[in-house]
Design a protein around this nucleic acid. Structure first.
Lengths: 201, 201
DNA sequence: GCGCTTCGCAAGCAAGCACTTGCTTCACCG
DNA sequence: CGGTGAAGCAAGTGCTTGCTTGCGAAGCGC
């Protein structure tokens, strides 16, 4: 059981899957991408289905290893903190946009597989939600709105930007970093972010 | 050339495609869904590729026929108008979410096909953008932000909600109509919507 | 040097795929 | 009523797919 081969196979399988989907990710293509004989795949993983499952779990773990964007426990400068968070999240989503698009589109065929990829963004969303509540508690944000909807507003904008930017480039005539700044600036006014003196920014 | 058959075939092809994608939409499945012999497909459309192209064009036309959500040329009550617009757009996107997910995920394999579906949301986005500019001109909204980014903010939230609501239902613990109201309320404060007396709402 | 494992290679299998052909049936139209 | 076009049906083509089998070669510890 060569572990070096195993890693290359998983990586290649994930890459081929995100480009072509379950049906397009043929065992021949994966073997070629991994620089490995096709028979080796079956000796290692038994079936194509198990191989893809292992590859997706590996990719999810790989993704999780890169530390997720974190918001501070104690808010000091909300706009600056959220901008940096938004920037990191945008880049992270943009990098694995193909994997996201593929898994999402295959949700209707095998929901459980797509569900495994739901957990990471769910934790990110919960992080933002908790941060907004902390802002409200400290008097740094208004309270006359639904914090869940506000979370969905920013999360959704970032998600849509990362996913559709390369498909409809004319609708995003600004860089990813500029997008983060703009979205957060608008979002801050939406939730009534105040500075430490209680003044609305 | 029976036109009644033709319509059923296109409808069935579009339905099978949005559920299974290009590779999963086999001619057998389409024929069965249309209640038609498989040979008939080839007699009508020649190849599977031409059939799917015709089906997608038909679906796009069908979608366009249902009048797109329109914002008034002369803004009177911005929040009410945008809420109604947002509600209609949200429902429209939610209805064809499977088709959107499938075409988007196949963008990397055949970009031109996915591009055909880009035009409708592009027009909707331009409509919202022009409306925001009109609000600014009439002094009904602030001007200290990028109107393009603001457009992307609301469009993105709506898009992400419609696309991912059924995949991650726990993140959307409110109905679609409530979502429209909340998003627009937040968005209105983000772009500094004022009422007719110039007071910030 | 000898087992033992692991990989590559060539070949092949059954099933499913897009697509074709030849024939029958049947409705419609002059 | 006879002819024409369109649909159904059965069969089959060549190709790809997931997966298997048998065998030889390379590494590697004892």
């Amino acid at each position: 059981m060569n572990d070096h081969h195993n890693h290359r196979i998983l990586e290649a399988a994930a890459r081929v899957f995100e480009e072509h989907g379950t049906r397009g990710a043929t065992t021949r293509r994966i073997a070629e991408a991994a620089g490995v004989n096709e028979v080796t795949l079956f000796r290692h993983f038994g079936t194509k289905e198990k191989l893809l499952r292992a590859a997706l779990e590996w990719a999810a773990g790989e993704q999780q290893e890169r530390s997720l964007p974190q918001l501070p426990d104690v808010p000091v400068d909300p706009v600056a903190e959220m901008t940096e968070w938004c920037r990191a999240h945008l880049h992270s989503l943009h990098e694995c946009r193909m994997l996201i698009r593929t898994t999402i589109s295959e949700f209707q065929e095998n929901p459980d597989t797509a569900m495994c990829g739901t957990q990471i963004p769910a934790r990110v969303a919960n992080g933002l939600y908790a941060y907004i509540l902390r802002l409200q508690e400290k008097g740094l944000a208004a309270r006359n709105y639904d914090a869940r909807s506000a979370t969905a507003l920013l999360m959704g904008s970032v998600f849509a930007d990362a996913i559709t930017r390369d498909i409809a480039p004319t609708r995003f005539p600004y860089s990813i970093d500029e997008a983060a700044t703009q979205y957060v600036a608008l979002f801050a006014r939406a939730i009534g972010v105040k500075d430490s003196r209680g003044e609305t920014q």
